[in-house]
C-alpha cells in the first residue's frame, strides 16, 4: 500500500511543475505554516500563552511525520480560505468540512474526522440505525440538524416519536433515564457529553450523516497534499489519530 502511494507521489513530481508547488519551499525551509481558527474547542483554542486542541496536536503530528517544524497562524473562521489563497499559510487544519464548491481553488486531503449526526443508544440496545426506530422515542436537541432529521424520519417511520429538548446534556439525560430509546446528536456533542455522564450509553457504529473534516491546501499544491495524505495515512494506521480523537473528545 505504502509503495503504491510513493509511486503516486513520484508520478506527481514528474507530472507537476515544481515551481508552482509549495512542497519544495516547505521542505527547504523545514517549516509547515498551519492556518487555523483558534476559537473552536476542542479542535483549537488559544489562550494568552497557549494553543491546544485536536487540530493543534494533529498538525504537530503531521509535521513530525514529515520531518518539519510547525508554525501556527491564527485567522477568523470566515477568513481561513482567503488567508490560504493569499499564501498566509501552507495548509489549513481547522475542522473544515470538505466543500465541493471550492475545489477550483483549493484541494482537500482525505478526511480525518466525521462530524455528522450519530445515533446514541443504551448499551445492549437493538437500535443500530433508522430502520430500528419503529415505535421508539428519539431525543434530539431542539432546533438542531438532528431535530430536522428526526422530524423527517417521523414522517416515514411508523410510531417514531421525536422528543426535542433544549440542550445536548438534556438529550443524553433522557436516554440515560430511559425517557427516550435513542438520541440523534452531532458526533462532537455526542462524544463530549457522553464523556461527562455515568450512563452506559454508546454511539451506533454507522454515522447517519457525513460531514468530513479535512486538511486544505491551494489547488496547485499537489505534492504538498500528497505528502500530507501519506502522513495522515500513517497516523491513521499507527493509531495516532484514534488516540487524538479519544483524548480530545472522550475526556480523561
Amino acid at each position: 500500500m505504502k509503495g503504491w502511494l510513493w509511486l503516486m507521489i513520484g508520478l506527481l513530481v514528474v507530472g507537476c511543475g515544481r515551481a508552482e508547488d509549495s512542497w519544495q519551499r516547505v521542505q527547504e525551509n523545514g517549516v509547515l505554516h498551519v492556518g487555523l481558527d483558534p476559537t473552536y474547542p476542542p479542535f483549537a483554542v488559544a489562550t494568552t500563552d497557549d494553543l491546544f486542541g485536536f487540530d493543534v496536536d494533529l498538525a504537530r503530528a503531521l509535521a513530525d511525520e514529515l520531518g518539519l517544524q510547525v508554525q501556527f497562524a491564527y485567522f477568523g473562521y470566515d477568513g481561513l480560505y482567503d488567508a490560504l489563497g493569499a499564501r498566509q499559510a501552507d495548509v489549513l487544519i481547522s475542522a473544515l468540512i470538505i466543500d465541493p464548491t471550492r475545489t477550483r481553488d483549493f484541494a482537500y486531503s482525505d478526511p480525518y474526522f466525521n462530524a455528522g449526526q450519530m445515533l446514541l443508544v443504551p448499551a445492549g440496545s437493538p437500535i443500530n440505525g433508522p430502520a430500528d426506530l419503529r415505535q421508539t422515542t428519539l431525543a434530539v436537541e431542539l432546533g438542531s440538524e438532528g431535530h430536522v432529521q428526526g422530524l423527517a424520519w417521523g414522517r416515514q417511520i411508523v410510531g417514531l416519536m421525536v422528543l426535542p429538548l433544549n440542550s445536548p446534556e438534556q438529550v443524553i439525560e433522557a436516554v440515560g433515564q430511559k425517557e427516550a430509546d435513542a438520541a440523534l446528536l452531532d458526533h462532537i456533542n455526542a462524544r463530549l457529553h457522553l464523556a461527562q455522564t455515568d450512563y452506559d450509553l454508546h454511539l451506533a457504529p454507522t454515522p447517519i450523516t457525513v460531514e468530513p473534516y479535512a486538511l486544505v491546501v491551494r489547488a496547485q499544491d499537489k505534492q504538498l497534499l500528497a505528502h500530507l495524505n501519506i502522513a495522515l495515512h500513517t497516523l491513521t494506521t499507527n493509531g495516532t489519530l484514534d488516540r487524538l480523537s479519544t483524548h480530545w473528545l472522550d475526556g480523561p
Binding site: 476559537t39 473562521y77 436537541e141 432546533g143 426535542p164 433544549n166 452531532d186 462532537i188
Partner: peptide
C-alpha cells in the same frame, strides 16, 4: 445564529 462554531452564535434552542 446557531452555527456550531461561530463565536457569535447561540445554541439552536436559544436561537428560537
Amino acid at each position: 445564529n446557531d452555527h456550531p462554531r461561530w463565536t457569535m452564535a447561540v445554541r439552536p434552542a436559544q436561537r428560537i
